[in-house]
Design a protein around this nucleic acid. Sequence first.
RNA 1: CGGGGCGUAGCGCAGCCUGGUAGCGCGCCUGCUUUGGGAGCAGGAUGUCGGAGGUUCAAAUCCUCUCGCCCCGACCA
Length: 577
Amino acid sequence: MRYSRAFIPTLREAPADAEVVSHVYMVRGGYLRKVAAGIYDLLPLGWRVVRKIEEIVRQEMDRAGAQEILMPAAIPAELWQESGRWQKYGAELLRFKDRKGADFCIGPTHEEVVVDIVRRDIKSYRQLPHNLYQIQAKFRDEPRPRAGLMRGREFIMKDAYSFDASDDGAKATYQAMYDAYARIFKRCGLEFRAVEADTGNIGGSMSHEFQVLAETGEDAIVACDSCNYAANVEQAEVRRAAASGATAPAGAPEELATPGKRSIAEVTAFLGKPATALLKTLVYLADGKPVAAVVRGDHEVNEIKLRKAAGATEVVLAGEKTVATETGAPVGYVGPLGLKFPVFVDLDVEWGGSYVVGAGKVDAHLGGVVPARDLAGARQVDLRVAAAGDPCPRCSSGKFQAFKGIEVGHVFFLGTRYSAPMRCEFLDADGQTKPMVMGCYGIGITRIAAAAIEQNHDEGGIVWPMALAPYHIALLPLQKDGDVAAVAEALYAELTALGVEVLLDDRDERPGVKFKDAELLGMPLRVAIGKKTLAEGKLELKVRKGGAASKDVELLPVEGAAAALAARVKAALAAGQ
RNA sequence: CGGGGCGUAGCGCAGCCUGGUAGCGCGCCUGCUUUGGGAGCAGGAUGUCGGAGGUUCAAAUCCUCUCGCCCCGACCA
């Protein structure tokens, strides 16, 4: 591509509404423009990146035995009513009426549609398994879209749905998808981690997220430093720490005056006790009914674990008024004793230990509370958020390390959650009618582009992995004079013939402008041709990853340069860099 | 949905408090010079001051309503 004819509107200054680096660089680099909140145009460079990601995904999905289809974006409400999600999905589902007044939505995900496809024509175990996928724009009316392509309302997603005749078959399919995902992200040149995850409102019994590691990631993940256990903190199990063997003092709890001391920090400072000697009691509404969650003072409640323990579909922290009416104590002084509703106590609370808890009335706490004696009616469950340093639940010696990640893929083992209610059934070899066993598998295509930048950038701009770069090489003739331009043109033609994608900066700009734009756009290799080095028969190769400085350049003989550069590009693609 | 902030030229911003001819930088156009890290000089074009209503002789500026956008939180494949 000749830069002089390309639509690449770069900006010197970042637009005021862009915050995260990937958003800023994509807008500044002319990859992306905003149309409305969370809705964007992909300009030529941005679309090239997206198509590269799509192509890698297609190749690996096909290789894993999946078949590509395309489902509609506009979906009739009937299908969503059948699965019950028309009511449950909430405001995130963009609904509209057609001219006859019939209800439709724009698909945020396609379980209903694909189940409808399969149940119509698949009747026998002999016709199974199948794995159907599509790459399509999805729409989710997020409460707060943010960060450019990282969390848009309209975004491109690859979603796949598998149908098997048995649990074992479905598990094998799940594993095949897991393996395909690992290959996809490796080929994209991303540093990632597969982690165990919560299934959210998609549902199902087993789930892994693929997280691109980046400081700016929204998800917190923990990984064992000794075995291969890794999980989203939402999901991460926590192994109960070894009991200290402390014996609790005899006698009843003793009231302690703690005027004005509400928070764990205030109470520990006031009483001179460590946070580990305190229990905090949080009141939640589980599907509208109060429950209490009790964790050690230094721990945090994991609301997903609480939701599962309470058997609820939704838990929300109770407001001040609710807390006061349900417990008789203001926030800060609620304790686990004498509550009229279910109490869940975290496993790291020692059953035989002695703790300070809220007294259940203002300006007071209770000391010497022994759970085994005083909280006999409570249920002990894993309730807290995992953190760095926690003991691994799967091996005896490991400890958790913490990472930040950007979720770019998610695989779910669904079982019969959709197939049973929607009667997606088949006749098995034994003559029995059975629901198909399903899995679903998503990849955020446009999010990958953003995640790649979050993980690979510097002060100058984007640093694309070779596989995702809109062009492999930025070729910069630095002067207009005959020789320089002629050599650049010849090299451009040669490289193009070798299948290398080149952006030839043939604009009438000063060298500094070309260098700055090349850094911003982020092609992995930059080749500069200037009269100085050309006089010696050399051109200048800079690997973008080495930083923005003009040092660290290699001089290559013009003779044979095309072949050498093409070899570099192919090597980087093969290595997943 | 709660809290905060912002809408003035393509982009970044000032002007608003204290009402009186709409400005700066970058970009854009023309010319000359320049040409290895976002050039210099000279000249030039570009605005329904987000929208509606109100107050006033007069509104970017004050008042009311409204729309849009951003950030934090809540929420979330």
